[in-house]
């Protein structure tokens, strides 16, 4: 498999709600870390779903080590703007006062896109960070991005701000960030579940993204496919096998009922995934197995991370 993801500096992980974006962002980070990279996980929400997977207590807007060379940051837009003002108004007393005013609260909730711009802009700063030897401090930056539908407006934030602010430093800031997002260094990973409706939506989103041309979509991940390991879908095969093994008619029937129900579902799922693979020829489609309900999220992320290795190292 081509090492699709290597060389990408910022990876946006998006998809419909509930498909497992956070857990797959975590899995990607683990896989990059294993390959000797120095990944940074970024989350834009104050509820820290991604942070909770690693059970880390991070201050908003502050890079926090998960382990050596594996970092996490939570950039909720509200914190980002407060931090930005803090840096602009060097005197801490004044900035504290400003941030606590009613005026600021109103302004920050209504000012056109500033909060979001500053949050997305933080990615630019993080991408630029280098260690003493001049090597990137974070490589790659993995972003647990907003869900489909909110994703395009999200990455278009700098563009929208540019449409409004035609001159001035805010405009310059927006141009800078927009430049990064529209470069080859950024790339999108789309997550879907293996059902027909979700896949249709993913394909529509792919079309929308390609009409924007950048950032490019690098891979589609189908998450939680229960049929992934199934090679034989013919229920007759299982009936024969069970006939040989299970003595008791009643328990054999009970198991066969389960197999039949499962196969109806698995067949539908396989058909949907095949349809996706047929429709997508230009980028890799990676189908991930469903991992039981008993494990904690970190163990699930660890099991899943192995599947990403080929996309990173290029190994088969």
């Amino acid at each position: 498999m081509k090492e699709t993801l290597s060389g990408k500096r910022v990876l946006f992980v998006t998809g419909k709600g509930g498909v497992g974006k956070s857990i797959l962002s975590a899995a990607l980070g683990l896989s990059f870390r294993r390959a000797g990279h120095r990944p940074l996980l970024v989350e834009f929400y104050p509820d820290k779903r991604l942070g909770n997977i690693f059970n880390i207590k991070a201050q908003p807007y502050q890079e926090t080590a998960i382990e050596k060379d594996f970092t996490y940051i939570n950039i909720s837009p509200a914190d980002a703007l407060a931090e930005y003002i803090r840096r602009q108004l060097v005197l801490d007393v004044i900035s504290k006062f400003v941030i606590n005013t009613k005026f600021y609260r109103h302004f920050s909730s209504t000012a056109p896109g500033l909060k979001e711009l500053v949050a997305v802009g933080k990615l630019y700063d993080l991408e630029k960070k280098r260690d003493d030897e001049g090597t990137s401090l974070y490589d790659p930056i993995i972003v647990d991005a907003p869900q489909l539908g909110k994703f395009v407006p999200f990455i278009r934030t700098p563009r929208s701000v540019m449409d409004m602010f035609r001159i001035g430093p805010v405009r310059k800031e927006a141009e800078k960030v927009n430049g990064l997002i529209l470069s080859n260094r950024c790339s999108v990973i789309m997550v879907s579940t293996p059902d027909e409706m979700a896949i249709t939506e993913a394909l529509e989103a792919k079309k929308e993204l390609s009409s924007m041309s950048k950032p490019a979509l690098s891979a589609i991940i189908v998450n939680m496919a229960v049929s992934n390991r199934i090679s034989i879908t013919d229920t007759g095969y299982y009936a024969t096998r069970l006939q040989e093994i299970a003595g008791n008619q009643a328990s054999r029937d009970g198991i066969m009922d389960a197999v039949k129900m499962f196969m109806t579902y698995a067949t539908m799922e396989k058909k949907a995934v095949r349809g996706l693979n047929d429709a997508v020829q230009d980028i890799p489609v990676l189908t991930l197995p469903f991992i039981g309900m008993d494990d904690d999220e970190l163990s699930i992320a660890e099991s899943l991370s192995a599947h990403f290795d080929p996309l990173i190292t290029g190994a088969p």
Binding site: R229, S231, Y238, L242, I245, V259, F262, F290
Partner: peptide, 23 residues
């Protein structure tokens, strides 16, 4: 039944997945 079958037996895999889905 699962415990009596080889790791890569298709019946074993299918039964494992039915149990996973049941869970």
């Amino acid at each position: 039944i699962i415990s009596t079958l080889d790791q890569d037996d298709p019946l074993r895999i299918t039964l494992e997945e039915t149990l996973a889905m049941d869970s």
